[in-house]
Write a protein that binds this DNA or RNA. Structure first.
Length: 428
RNA sequence: GGAGAGGUGGCUGAGUGGUCGAUAGCACUUCAUUGCUAAUGAAGCGUUCGGGUCAAACUGAACCGCAGGUUCGAAUCCUGUCCUCUCCGCCA
């Protein structure tokens, strides 16, 4: 959520930003309602003050008659105050609704453009795109060859979009998790495993809209709980309502959770295999920072993502996301797109990680603040998130890039300690 | 899941209808004082929204888990709800 005062004071900048993002937002309407709300707020406050004054007089009223008179006056003042307050609350609710739909301001250097066509490639990973002297197989075929994936059983048990990992895929899964978590702990991140469900208010705070028509979120019937779509939700929600001491920041967490996504509306662009699934496991980075720290930490998260995928020996490119392709809370977002030889005709880039600086947009909604010792008042922290490893897509990249002509899959060196072998060979 | 107890300021802990935003202690900050690494004394010490100011000072409102209700007036009474603790049951 954007700061209301900022919207009122900079309507042109906000509108310009909405336009760059391709979002229509009722900025003028919000400003008009806010002016009305201020009037009602002052009115209610003034009436309340008078009512309080009257109440205090009742205690020391000279006679029973005077007391009754004052009581009546008090009653009437409260009624007027309640009416003003009720009018105020309605306005407040309307404003909040509008305010929630205004996206975060975008970083001045973020490429301006309507969609992912305008995304700007800013760098490439160390691993070159593999030049196969054979026709590479996609991960579904490789999975079949090595008995790694069972989509049919997944569909039987939970429906299309669910799957079982088997055999070495399970070891790869755990290896990817261990590798990522260990590396991040070395870098000062606190490891956390999180709930896989969260309250609706937490989802809202992070910027997800469960129970809407186009929601990506599974909700649990007859409860206020939703399956999380990412640990970003739980890690951000972890400190909802908290006030940090400024010395505690930046606080860096690495969370491990399952992620559940309905992929509503994705039917048209349904992808093969593990690329777009309803459930996967993800190692997620999350950070709370002082405002002046967030830009640098965002670069750090991006570099960590590069380091991880370089270590996995997977070719990738880094993309600076265009304004029109940013999620509402993001101020700036980088995606890592891994080369996936089995995707499309002759291979395609496919998103494997993404890191966003959300500045104070989520913190305002979640009410996460910090306090500087010796200074009055509190300020909102900045929040950042970044994928370390999304297991399902990482498995695609590893399988497809490390295959050999005979179908053998070379296990990246950094994963070998946990997979327990140098390659996944074809069963005889 | 059953039974009981409780949720008050950074912490401990008073407060059962009217100067309670809230006693007291600890912690913290500032000042004073004492020749010894600390003691003593005084004052200050929450958040949010508004007015005010260059900025302060100052000032209005709200906040005692949360949401409602009763009342002229609620931390205090009533209802619901969430959470915590203890005991029992169940279980990984």
């Amino acid at each position: 959520m954007l700061d209301r005062k900022y919207i009122v004071e900079h309507p042109d900048l906000v509108k310009q930003n909405c336009a760059a993002r391709g979002v229509t937002a009722a900025v003028d309407q919000l400003i008009a309602l806010e002016a009305e709300r201020r009037v009602k707020s002052n009115e209610a406050q003034e009436l309340n003050r008078l009512a309080n004054e009257t109440s205090k007089l009742i205690g020391k009223a000279a006679s029973a008659e005077a007391r009754e008179e004052l009581k009546e006056k008090g009653r009437s003042l409260r009624e007027q105050k309640d009416a003003a307050q009720a009018a105020h609350d309605v306005l407040e609710q309307q404003i909040l609704e509008l305010q929630t739909h205004i996206p975060n301001m975008a970083h001045p250097d973020a490429p301006v453009g309507a969609d992912d066509e305008a995304n700007l490639q800013i760098s490439l990973g160390k691993t070159p795109i593999p030049q196969f002297d054979f026709t590479p197989q996609d991960h579904v075929e490789l999975g079949r060859l090595h008995d790694l994936l069972d989509f049919e059983a997944g569909a039987t048990v939970a429906g299309s979009g669910f799957y079982f990992l088997k055999n070495d895929a399970v070891l790869l899964d755990l290896a990817l998790q261990m590798f990522a978590v260990q590396l991040l702990v070395k870098k000062g991140f606190t490891p956390v495993t999180t709930p896989d469900v969260a309250h609706t208010t937490i989802l809202h705070g992070i910027g997800f809209m469960p129970r809407g028509p186009e929601t990506q979120i599974y909700s649990i019937e007859n409860t206020d709980l939703n399956l999380v779509a990412t640990a970003e939700i739980t890690l951000g929600g972890m400190y909802s309502g908290h006030v940090f001491d400024s010395e505690q920041l930046p606080l860096k967490l690495v969370g491990l959770s399952h992620c559940f996504r309905t992929e509503a509306g994705a039917a048209g662009r349904a992808s093969k295999g593990l690329y777009r699934v309803h459930q996967f496991t993800k190692v997620e980075m999350f950070a709370f920072t002082l405002p002046e720290q967030s830009d640098a930490l965002h670069e750090e998260l991006r570099e960590i993502e590069c380091e991880l995928f370089d270590a996995l020996e997977v070719p990738f490119r880094v993309v600076d996301t265009a304004t029109g392709d940013l999620g509402g809370p993001a101020y700036r977002k980088y995606d890592l797109e891994a080369w996936m030889p089995g995707r499309g005709e002759g291979g395609q880039w496919g998103e494997v990680t993404s890191t966003s600086n959300c500045t104070d947009y989520q913190a305002r909604r979640l009410n996460i603040r910090y306090k500087v010792k010796g200074e009055k008042g509190t300020h909102f922290v900045h929040t950042l998130n970044g994928t370390a490893v999304a297991i399902s897509r990482a498995i695609i990249a590893v399988l497809e890039n490390h295959q050999r002509a005979d179908g053998t899959i070379q296990v990246p060196k950094v994963l070998q300690p946990w997979v327990g072998k140098e390659s996944i060979a074809v069963a005889q």
